[in-house]
Design a protein around this nucleic acid. Structure first.
Lengths: 233, 233
DNA sequence: TGTGACATAAACGTCGTACTTTTTGTTCCC
DNA sequence: GGGAACAAAAAGTACGACGTTTATGTCACA
């Protein structure tokens, strides 16, 4: 689950980003480009490009004569999907999952309301199809298949909202759902109530019932938060 | 309103980012690193670092033998404050402002509700101070002073929510408010109703009234959206 | 004529080195 | 003791060379 294909740049970036997100380099620590080049056995050019990217994410700050300083968490671009992935792989995944789930609970109901007004017939059809897929995979340890449909479902709602900022949150939601499924105690099948809510949400959107769509999505979010409370410390 | 201090890297990055965000290079267009180096009169090293950063923002995609391709808008990291700034400076500022305002209308009410529960006494005090500052600058063409207090106000609410994702949206809100004030027809003073709502919101948070805080913030958001409808095409 | 293997070249990817600039710590002198 | 000149450290920039991938054109062969 790294960034993309091979490439020295990618490897160094991913490793460093992961380490910083995990807290292996506490804020204030300075890294030297030469050291990094030596450590990864790459040229300084590669390291510099990585540092520049990390800097654009506000994970580090590069200053002459002092080095590359790790910045405090408050400065990080926490909406960058890459950063989210790194953090979800790290130690404070629970805290992170909670933050993101609260974010979802704020955004998705509004997005669903908009989707009920703006969704195209194709989107409605796709939504129903996803809901059916969730039903079909909701029993018998088919968590991967369920996850896939769940992600697609929420992505469609966000896209159908017609708002670009909402739409682009699809990746974040995907990360959250995947993180929840993969890194948490989830022996059992998904909550049947959640499945039902998704089916009814698809209906509400199709019927253009914005109020119902918003309410149903809120219920889904509340359920997700409750699930976190139960399963996470 | 560029990125930071001087530096070749910064200049090239800012120029290119601005151009791409403005649509000067339509999606699919390919840029060659050599050409860019020549155009900006810098070494290929600098250009490569810029491209890597642009690539991490998903504004471009670099492939061997083909060049650096501009990616479609849907791929961009639109939550990156840098990208937001570039886009707000460009042609489709109206659309952008609307998207961001809708986003605010989803997030801030929830954040305000949480703030009412979690705000520290210091945050409550700071909030009241900001509200008073808004009142003081709400008449007599003191738009800049008003803007400053407005930004601080919303930033405090987002921070006081205790949710990291909300807190990090402070920069986005700041950009929106600044963009609205600077780039829009705003001869008159701010809407008096909005000022009142802010004062009452500060009170609600101080009193820990989450429901009222959420409702008041919703009203502020509705007002902002309405203002956009009236002033924007 | 169509298809597949192969050669070619274009662009990025990586490297090493040398030089410049800025910041900071230190030393020396008043 | 304080301030100014100086020295060193680390990032910033430049340049040139070579490696690697891959789109594309060509040629042979059926």
């Amino acid at each position: 689950m790294t960034t993309q294909g091979p490439g020295l740049h990618t490897h160094v970036l991913d490793t460093l980003g992961l380490e910083i997100a995990a807290g292996a380099h506490p804020p204030g620590q300075v890294l030297r480009t030469d050291e990094l080049a030596q450590r990864f056995d790459v040229s300084r050019t590669v390291v510099r490009e990585v540092i520049r990217v990390l800097e654009s994410m506000h994970l580090v700050e590069s200053r002459r004569r002092v080095g590359v300083t790790v910045r405090p968490t408050e400065a990080w671009n926490v909406y960058d999907p890459q950063v989210i992935r790194w953090r979800l792989a790290g130690a404070d995944r629970p805290r992170q999952l909670r933050s993101l789930t609260v974010l979802r609970s704020a955004i998705e109901p509004v997005a669903a309301g908009l989707a009920a007004r703006n969704a195209t017939p194709e989107q409605c059809a796709a939504l129903t199809e996803c809901a059916l897929g969730m039903v079909a995979t909701s029993r018998g340890q088919q968590l991967e298949g369920y996850l896939e449909h769940d992600i697609a479902f929420h992505r469609i709602v966000l896209n159908a909202s017609g708002n670009e900022m909402f739409a682009r949150l699809g990746d974040v939601v995907a990360e959250v759902l995947a993180g929840r499924t993969h890194h948490q105690v989830m022996f059992e099948d998904p909550d049947p109530a959640a499945v039902t809510l998704h089916v009814r949400l698809a209906e509400a959107v199709r019927e253009g019932d914005a109020v119902a769509a918003e309410r149903l999505t809120k219920e889904i979010a509340v359920g997700a938060l409750h699930e976190l409370d139960v399963l996470a410390p």
